[in-house]
Design a protein around this nucleic acid. Structure first.
Length: 887
RNA sequence: GGGAGCAUAGCUCAGCUGGUUUAGAGCAUCUGCCUUACAAGCAGAGGGCCAUAGGUUCGAAUCCUAUUGCUCCCACCA
């Protein structure tokens, strides 16, 4: 069969993925083997695959495939997250395009639309993961709003409520006027924003002493909130304002009198040192208001428009109102000046709307005790963060943790299981029936329709923090004493979690808390934190910038295997990766290299009667050692999660050691257009090496390795490389490898000489070496790889011949090159070489001549220095001798 | 403002507890090759004051201090 000289991924990827699925190779059930478990960080159900997912899921697939091949019962649980804000926003948008406003329909109708949306679009991302080759146990696919997972969330809420850790309270929250919901502190992104500092004049109420200023000037970035001012505040130490103690000022435009108060919070040299206090719309002002028992006037509606309490500009959006009020103030002569100002303004992570600090009734979970345990297990490395530099960040968070605002003013999500009686009393139960029973115990006359459930839903992270538990045993969360089911008992704690550092606190820390609370055990042992995928210029990939390649297109063009290799080569834990298509190209080229190595081996004729040559025998035993050595290094790298290093070792093992050296050495030559046969021993060894290499490569490049593994030898139906045992090292022969390295070095030197002297590789070359120090093992390799048919081992070089010499270690080689040598150039070169070694010796001697060094350094180090010295001395002697013959 | 991290070849990064021939890899570059597996390839080569300045040490890319430049996190000054 004639194979094309390019690998075509489109002919193999779908074929083998279907094969794996049909045979249920990804599915895991508890058995007597040790489990290896990963739960996927559930992507948004409405999401589409981006480069971050590619990196993240490639890493997980590599880990899980390796585990599967090293004897573990590997289970990778996939699923999606309901992502309340993001999904609700998408559904609202879709309805809007159909002319339906959310405010015009009922909660039930809206949820119907939302579920329809999720049934239609949800899970696209999971289909895309299949293209990547993700070996998830699809039978275990979960969704954070599956009925039993939602029940788990509600049970958890009830559990914490009854434990006294959940409470309801008025708090200043980060309000997203676009999403119409409160968002947590972590979902607020502070961005440096160009804004203006407006200097406003507030007239002083009452009489003013002759000659004194009749107003104070206040600097603010938010002039539209002046109507909500309840005081003006100065620093008690600020002499400029001593005379105004106890006075009132008048808010411009609405002519309302408010007091001047004093508080240390005010910085004297910022602005005018005079601060307006607006408790409803600023967190610090709110706190000052509490200290001074000031009223709260909330003039902004949920959607960011001004309400009637503002008295002016009612119904205007806050930013429109800002422009208008500046104009009004200016016309009234109350605007002193405007300065440009850069400030950090909070934006909603989901909608990018400017966050409005707002007082609102919310549900909170107390975090202090939960955080203590979750910190402890990371501190003592029960849960390992990779890289461990994130421990610092984690500690900082956990020591300064604030209560978690868990309510969201949305419909898509688990509705809070709190029910209100007409008298305002509240019962919390996991179902309406239970709540109704409980309410009836308070008020026996209560009717079902009188009991009203809280409108809010729970923060999405309040369901995803249960993920490692609820995907296995949804009945467990909320019931720490309940025995785990068989799945949970077997798969929990999971092994590795692969995720992004930005959700270390959001998600990782909280999973640890939930795990400790409900299972009295950590949810995972290792947390591998990937970096952010950035573009070549270091910008974060984003839809807005349009700088993110479409992963599906990328896989089509370069093959899933190529994309995987490209991503893996440039990722180290915790470091951002700068993505460039050339990396993926490298991956594709590697696929092609593997493909062509296969074509080569497949084309060989094998002879049963042919004896194995010396050089083949040497190559076979050398590669066995190289393979073992590489396996040892790869295993070590994986154990330390140095995945790109492991992948690079595999890459070089295949490309350099296997293809460039091993295959080239054993490759039968063509004589008169006819290919020579290969002896069976060498061929069999080669096939077994190829087989081992494919297995080692499989976790990284699953498709091409399955394709070639299926073809390189006869396979039975239902067999797969996926479930083969990963090759193990039997220990490598370091002496053999070192000797072979010398051969390689010699070959490279001869090739370089050829290039320098313009001698074609096809032209056989005579090379001499002195027998006194020559190790025989490398002769055959040099002969074949450097085209030196007869490496002459001589007593002395024939000094009557013109030629060139070179050294490998301390061994000197001589290549007679009659008529091709420029003597002066040669002498110059040798002299330069001598000079270099002399410099080197000087350095070594400086060390050895230092009594303190010899006395203090370990004997091993001193011995090494002496060896350096003697080697260099030998080299110089050899070079000097050569120089003498030339002169 | 507080904290953390990073700085090594053109690019992306290794370099682990200070000592292995006066620093390694991949990519890119340059040179020569269309050699019967692969030009998505082969062969060869060049390229670094290890950010700067001090210090510790027999010995520093590695440890310490300061400086500079980037990055991230936390808290925010209206």
């Amino acid at each position: 069969m004639e194979l094309p000289n390019k690998y075509d991924p489109s002919l193999t990827e779908d074929k083998w993925y279907s094969y794996w699925l049909e045979n249920g190779f990804f599915h895991s059930e508890p058995d007597e083997r040790e489990p290896y478990t990963i739960v996927i960080p559930p992507p948004n159900v409405t999401g589409v695959l981006h480069m971050g997912h590619m990196l993240n899921n490639t890493l997980q697939d590599v880990l899980v495939r390796r585990a599967r091949m090293t004897g573990y019962n590997a289970c990778w649980v996939p699923g999606t997250d309901h992502a309340s804000i993001a999904t609700e926003a998408k559904v609202v948008e879709k309805l809007k395009s159909e002319g339906i406003e959310k405010s015009d329909i009922t909660r039930e109708e809206f949820l119907k639309h939302a579920w329809e949306w999720r049934d239609k679009h949800g899970g696209i991302i999971l289909e895309q993961l299949k293209k990547l080759g993700a070996s998830c146990d699809w039978k275990r696919t979960r969704f954070t709003m599956d009925p039993d997972l939602s029940a788990a969330v509600l049970n958890t809420f009830v559990y914490f409520y009854k434990k006294g850790l959940i409470y309801r309270g008025v708090r200043m929250v980060n309000w997203d006027p676009e999403g119409l919901t409160a968002v947590s502190d972590e979902e607020v992104i502070h961005k440096e924003t160009d804004s203006k500092f407006y200097y406003l004049k507030y007239k002083i109420a009452g009489d003013v002493v002759e000659g004194e200023c009749d107003h104070v000037t206040i600097a603010t970035t938010r002039p539209e909130t002046i109507m909500a001012d309840v005081a003006v505040c100065v620093n008690p130490a600020d002499e400029r304002y001593f005379h105004l103690r106890g006075r009132n000022v008048i808010i411009p435009l609405i002519d309302k009198e408010i007091p001047i108060i004093e508080d240390d919070y005010v910085t004297m040299d910022l602005g005018t040192g005079c601060l307006k206090i607006t408790p409803a719309h600023d967190i610090n002002d709110y706190e000052i208001g509490l200290r001074h028992k000031l009223p709260v006037i909330d003039i902004i509606n949920d959607d960011g428009t001004l309400n009637e309490k503002a008295r002016i500009l009612i119904g205007e959006d806050r930013f429109v109102a800002r422009k208008k009020i500046v104009k009004m103030l200016s016309e009234a002569g109350l605007l002193e000046k405007v300065e440009d100002y850069k400030s950090q303004v909070g934006h909603s992570e989901r909608t990018d709307a400017v966050i409005e600090p707002k007082l609102s009734m919310q549900w909170f979970l107390k975090m202090e005790d939960l955080a203590k345990d979750a910190l402890q297990v990371v501190e003592d490395d029960s849960v390992r963060l990779i890289p461990d530099k994130f421990k610092n960040t984690y500690r900082h968070w956990m020591e300064n943790v604030r209560d978690w605002c868990i309510s969201r003013q949305l419909w898509w999500g688990q509705q809070i299981p709190a029910y209100y009686l007409p008298n305002g009393e509240c019962v919390v139960e996991s179902t309406f029936e239970k709540a109704f029973d409980a309410a009836r115990r308070i008020d026996p006359s209560l009717k079902a329709e009188d009991l009203v459930q809280d409108e809010d839903v729970l923060d999405t992270w309040f369901s995803s923090w249960l993920w490692p538990i609820s995907v296995f045993d949804p009945a467990k969360p909320g019931f720490p004493d309940k025995a785990p089911n068989a799945d949970l008992a077997y798969y929990y704690p999971t092994n590795d979690l692969v995720t992004a550092p930005e959700i270390l606190f959001f998600w990782v820390a909280r999973m640890i808390m939930a795990g400790e609370e409900f299972c009295q055990d950590i949810p995972f042992r290792n947390v591998y934190l990937t970096g952010i995928v950035r573009d070549k210029q270091g910008r974060k990939m984003s839809k807005q910038l349009g700088n993110s390649p479409d992963p599906i297109k990328l896989m089509k063009e370069y093959g899933a295997d190529g994309v995987r290799l490209g991503m893996l080569l440039c990722t180290s834990a915790g470091n951002d990766i700068l993505f460039d298509e050339s990396q993926v190209e490298q991956g594709r080229n590697f696929s092609n290299k593997i493909w062509n190595a296969y074509r080569l081996v497949k084309g060989w004729k094998v002879s049963d009667t042919m004896a194995q040559s010396d050089v083949n025998q040497l190559a076979v035993s050398w590669f066995a050692s190289k393979l073992d050595k590489a396996i040892e290094s790869i295993d070590e790298d994986f154990a330390k999660f140095r995945i790109s290093d492991a992948v690079m070792t595999i890459y070089k093992l295949f490309w350099d050691d296997f293809c460039s050296w091993y295959l080239e050495i054993i490759k039968p030559s063509f004589i008169d257009g006819v290919q020579e046969s290969m002896d069976k021993a060498t061929f069999d060894a080669t096939i077994s090496y190829f087989d081992a290499l494919l297995k080692i490569l499989h976790p990284v490049m699953p498709f091409i390795t399955e394709e070639l593994w299926q073809n390189i030898e006869e396979r039975k139906k239902g067999e797969t490389i996926m479930l083969q045992q990963m090759p193990l090292s039997t220990g490598h022969d370091a002496t053999l490898i070192a000797a072979f390295d010398k051969a390689i070095e010699t070959v490279v030197s001869i090739r370089a000489l050829r290039q320098l002297k313009n001698i074609s590789p096809k032209e056989p070359l005579a090379v001499q070496v002195k027998s006194t120090y020559y190790p025989a093992i490398i002769t055959s390799v040099i002969s074949k790889m450097a085209n030196v048919p007869n490496l002459q081992i001589v007593e002395q070089f024939d000094t009557t011949l013109a030629g060139q010499s070179f050294m490998v270690g301390t061994i000197e080689y001589f290549v007679p090159l009659e008529g091709m040598i420029d003597m002066d150039e040669e002498i110059e070169k040798i002299e330069a070489e001598i000079k270099r070694y002399e410099g080197f010796i000087k350095g070594v001697n400086a060390k050895l001549g230092n009594a303190a060094f010899v006395a203090n350094a370990p004997a091993k180090v001193v011995a090494l220095e002496r060896k350096k010295l003697s080697d260099a001395t030998t080299k110089i002697e050899t070079l000097r001798a050569r120089l003498a013959t030339l002169k």
